[in-house]
Computed example of a mutant assay.
Amino acid sequence: MAAGLLAGTAHAGEIRILVIGGALASNCNAHAFQPAAGVYQLGLDGAEKPAGDPFDWADCQGGAQWVPLGEALLRLGRADRVVFLPVGVQRARAADWLTDSPARTRLQAALAMARAHHMRFDYALWQQGMADAGTPRSEHATQVDAVIKSINRQVRIGKWLIARQSGCAGQPDPDISSAQLQAARDPLHRRFPGPDVDALGAAYRVDGCRLNRAGQEEMARRWVRAMGEADAEYTRYQKESLLHYFR
């Protein structure tokens, strides 16, 4: 489905992106990007504003990867304008988005704002998991599934992309990563794999964990690639479903 249709009242050629995540998806990275033409964020009051770091709905006071992602989508002609709503809380666990916690409070306020302004999102990007290290695979998969279902009941999402992110300093948690990949392989419910954040080595980090500018820009490139792959996979899935139905 075209971005303009999913975006509700958005302009033609607009992409709206919801982000949910921990420190690396928040404003906790090394480089703060300045506003870029055509890239916007939804402010605390729901009004669009230029999307420079730090983003309003995410914590920390550094930088994120969303301005370069927006610029990359514009350069590729994927959109005429890109609007972000990144909800990020450092050290958030998957369960924190479901229970009484600062992460859930922030998320619910953002979703309430989105509903009040009749907003719909073309993509939702899930990028968190480092704080979940040690959680059993099945438990983490259940938690991620519950978060996604909870958000889907509140706002309309075109596609979910779920990154693999499970550790720092070259020490990923295979159970967390496996659970994330499991949750992402579900085209029926429009869930697809996002980038492998764990694969970013020391050259992309400032302290073995947080991203430097090269890491932020590399993540933007990987998100663009993942979004394109998700769109192609969903198109294939729809065609295969129709062929099966009409046999």
Rank of each mutant, 00 (worst) to 15 (best):
G88M: 10
S150T: 12
A110E: 12
R78N: 07
A79S: 00
Q90F: 15
G70S: 06
G62F: 12
A79H: 01
R153M: 10
W66N: 10
Q154V: 10
S101H: 07
R156K: 11
W66S: 14
R104D: 01
L69W: 15
A114I: 03
Q154A: 07
V144H: 04
W126M: 13
H140W: 08
L98A: 05
V155D: 11
R106I: 02
V144W: 05
D56A: 01
H117C: 05
A64Y: 07
I148L: 10
L73K: 01
V67D: 02
S138T: 11
L98Y: 05
L69S: 12
L111Y: 06
K149T: 03
R81V: 09
A64N: 12
F84Q: 03
G63W: 14
V82E: 06
N152S: 13
E71F: 02
C60P: 14
A131L: 08
S101D: 02
D122M: 07
R75W: 15
Q143D: 14
R106H: 06
A131W: 03
L73P: 02
G134P: 04
A133V: 04
T135F: 06
G70M: 10
R156I: 08
D59V: 06
S138C: 01
C60T: 14
Q127I: 09
V82H: 07
R106L: 03
V89I: 15
Q65R: 13
V147Q: 06
A110K: 08
R115H: 08
E139C: 08
V83Q: 02
A79P: 01
L98W: 09
A64H: 12
V89M: 11
Q65T: 15
F55T: 00
R156D: 11
A92C: 11
L85R: 02
H117G: 05
R156Y: 09
G77W: 13
W126Y: 14
V144N: 04
